[in-house]
Design a protein around this nucleic acid. Sequence first.
RNA 1: GUCCCCGUCGUCUAGCCCGGUCCAGGACACCGGCCUUUCACGCCGAUAACACGGGUUCAAAUCCCGUCGGGGACGCCA
Length: 493
Amino acid sequence: MENEIRVRFAPSPTGYLHIGGARTAVYNWLFAKKHNGKFILRIEDTDTERSTEASTEGILDGLRWLGILWDEGPNLQSNNIEKHKKIALKLLSTGHAYKCFCTKEGLDARRELAKEEKRAYKYEKTCTNLTEDEIKEKESKGMPFVVRFKVPEGEGSVIFKDVVYGINEKKYEDIEDFVILRSDGSPLYLLSNAVDDINDRITHVIRGQDGLANTPRQILIYEALGITPPVFAHMPLTLDTKKEKISKRKHGEVVAVQFYREKGFIPWALVNFLVLLGWHTSDDREIFTREELIDAFTLEGVSKSNSIFNYKPGDPKFFTDPKALSINATYLRSMPVEELNVYLKPLFMNAGLWRDEYESVKKNWFNKTIDLIRSRYHTLNDFVNLGRAYFSDEFPVDEAASKKNILKHPHLKDIFPLLAERLGECPAWEISDIEATIRQFIEEKAENPGTVINGIRTVVSGQSVGPGLFELIEVIGKERVIERLKNTLVLYK
RNA sequence: GUCCCCGUCGUCUAGCCCGGUCCAGGACACCGGCCUUUCACGCCGAUAACACGGGUUCAAAUCCCGUCGGGGACGCCA
């Protein structure tokens, strides 16, 4: 147990779970699984202004849907505030921190001035060397103060090795004495985060690259406390096609995990896509089962450069990154049908298409039908939208298909009812008999086979595209096919 | 402005550490073909990249320097 690997995902609940965060969670989770460690979920909710409970729920929901389950938590950071304060006070007593009476207004003004003069601003350390008496005096006057961490002075630097980015060195002189306790006594992120990591006995901090610059300061905290820092591994960021950080404000729903659930993604397909955004094996594999991924995953395979989420707003063909869609489609057409049905059932129920017999007497038919149509689909939703005609008598007829395959050939309305009758006499409802019957009919009527075949497809399925006609007819069923052919006339209006 | 990081096809990336096997490999997308009286799947093929400039070397995507480009961090946010 001493050497147990412990990692955490620590989002702040200020919005839904977005794909960048989800990817970080996935990397942590994979690392834990790979090393038989623990994956801890911590909600960093100390920013009461922006944190919401709905957001916390959304994050938990998103992770559950993805199948990224945590071993401990969710721990709310807000429950640990007293511990954070206690540590700050300890730092104060050991001389690693000091009280600073500088006002926020004064600081802001100086920062602003520095910015105008295009100078780097760094806290002047005005309060570093206040004497006991000076401090007492200010306190007795009721002057508010913050607690600042005292960065070591002199030539030294903080050096650490990031698993992804390698050796990092930051000179003490480039680090400002940062605030760890607000004037109201509440702790700040740099402190809280490090203290929680200590309390949770985190061994590996796997987080976004935006945390890289925080690391030296956090290491200073560890050192001041006499605790060995965890291993750090920073992940490259995911940017949009304009190379900007992805965010809900700019990109809307496409960057929300929830969006993919609504659009009919298989959760694992999304995980598979996400994990490839910044990580790769040396061989050519890109599709992984859960076990394969856990086995293949290493932090060393994470790349240093930021990756771009290839989403183009308004693209008529792809509503998200084409690769994500492609991976989803790959799963859709290659996973065992029974497994696929687990995802399909709730969708069918929602669409009013579900029948309990799909799991009993019509189970074989249902599986066969799903298998027949799935190679054409990209999302789970396609089954209930594009595939509606297979499961219901109420289905839309594609306008273009109707125009091209039906309206252009007015005589079809006369011959299809005859064909319906002929099919009714079909000895066995099997592909070979169906095909023979139809071909003979075409020959008798001296029809163009293409016209008839495409016409039937449109009448029977509402679409101009789909499986081979005879398979289609077999699967849709005798009764329905005859009914639809007889009603061809209704399409001419 | 200061500090740090990154830079291979449109996108995700392999290769870079340990120079030659790389006139740079795979995947997605795009284009063409085969299959198919539809569409998709499948199969085959095509287009497409080492940011730029110097240097080191017999030889550089790989090593060094510089330039440019992109990103991140610089809060009493997390």
